[in-house]
Design a protein around this nucleic acid. Sequence first.
DNA 1: GTGTCGCCGAATTATCGTAA
DNA 2: TTACGATAATTCGGCGACAC
Length: 279
Amino acid sequence: MLNQSFIFARGMTEELERALWAHGLTSWDLLRRHPAEAAEVLGAGRAQKLNEAVGEAQQALDRRDLAWFRANWPERELWRLWKGFCADAQVALIDIETTGLTPGYDQITVIGLSDGVVARAFVAGRPQPGDDQLEKFIEHIRSYHLIATFNGAAFDVPFIEKHFREAGFKFEMPHIDLLPPARSLGLGGGLKDMEKQLGIVRDADIKDIRGHEAILLWGAWKNGDANAYRRLTTYCKADCVNLRAFGETVWRRQWDKIFTPHAREVDFDRINGQQMSLF
DNA sequence: GTGTCGCCGAATTATCGTAA
DNA sequence: TTACGATAATTCGGCGACAC
């Protein structure tokens, strides 16, 4: 959970964070209410600095300062924002289809955008009824507080920002790229391979589509094949919707790895830190 | 005060793997 | 097939502890 993390503060390490959790300081609130205990773990100077950093983060969270989190939260720990940063419906799950791999040379054909329940497709050229013009994407994305992708740090985000560069568009909200945290759990391959490893299933008619086939489907649609259009947009939207279950699983497994084994619950008021009990 | 050592974090470099 | 971010490995610099 976001407000149980201290790793964002300068000078913090995973070891120190675990030591805080093991001493019962398992949230921002507990840390701020028990500075003496924090000083026991970190030393007075570092504890004071951490307290200030937590206060700054809490203020940024209260005023929904997305830019603060984008600038100050360590990239490799952004997956922690999955819980506690904003409502699920404010997390934009994004996937794109393109004509190739090179931003600036290849073109975006479809952008899929989902809140995890429903998905819409923003399509280049002439979208079919029910879908939106590609250019409408930047209007819709502004209402979200967090974006999540698979390998989006290297692919989707630079592609989208390059496409909308002339409109002055850049993502202002924090971005969770689910690929690195999934890999650190021992999952391998691309998104579809990882989904299989996690038991996440797709509809039968699109389950075998891979990225390179999206290029062929786009070409077929340009030649008038309406079924290719339907398969392409369905595939793109399914990639987005599935990111919800994928992200939930990755987050849960990560949290169970780093937090659950180390954290202890302590009733500071009752026993003055003399006795601990396991969660 | 000076020099050495070890530790830690930051910066740099090389390699890997994924996206369509 | 290319670009780019993540990761691991390596290097560098700052700092404190210690001995002389």
